[in-house]
Amino acid sequence: MTQPAPRLSVSGWIAFAAAVGLALGALLGWVAFAPRHPGDDSADAGFARDMSEHHAQAVEMSLLVMQRTDDPDVVRLASDIATSQAYQQGQMGTWLVEWGLPQARPGERMAWMAGHDHATMDMPAGVPMPGMATPAEIAKLTSSRGKAAEVLYLQLMTTHHLAGVEMARAGLDLGRDPQVRSLAEKMVRAQSGEVELMTTMLTERGSQPREDVSAIMGPNSPSASTPAEESSSTMGGHSRH
């Protein structure tokens, strides 16, 4: 009869058990508690927080202009922006709740966009994020009436949307969560389309956007290349059609 195979000593077994137990504990802990959701520093969470703040001002300006003009086209556009962006704010806030994350950021605004190669936009002092109106501009919109309010709103909202599209592109570029990427894509399409609409509306009012829109959006903007798909978008689609 041959000798039995050499066995592990007791201490050997204990060391082995400790290693297996630790690995198992870490695995189980991961299964039980690991963030199956985007983390606090993720692009997804950064997008949700920053886009919420950005949207809030679009809603604010839209509500302001609706009280300052009776023009049906402007009121319809403002109503579209206010309702869809307020809804999207709710979506983004709910994601953060589901992910177990605070609505308040852990650090600076737009830190999550570091890896995104984005077009630079002017950001006046006192403005938290690109495209947002200054307090003076909000005050001017508040005190304007009629056509003056319409033109100022369309210009401010065009600036707002151009930066909004850029941030949404960053969300699409850097976001990992499918819900985030899907909403970011809808924002790019809806806001690009609205920029075109607002350019036309400004022309009708003898004015124009403050930016060179086609230079910023490029000839291949989603709305320019695939206008038909926009009407099938369930969220944030505009009422141009």
Binding site: L24, L28, A34
Partner: peptide, 22 residues
């Protein structure tokens, strides 16, 4: 082996639990 494995398991779970509150 069982005792050590249980201790290690609990340790792993507790570590995760502490680390996850953002």
């Amino acid at each position: 082996v069982v005792a050590v494995a249980i201790v290690a398991l609990v340790g792993g779970l507790v570590t995760w639990q502490i680390a996850r509150d953002p």
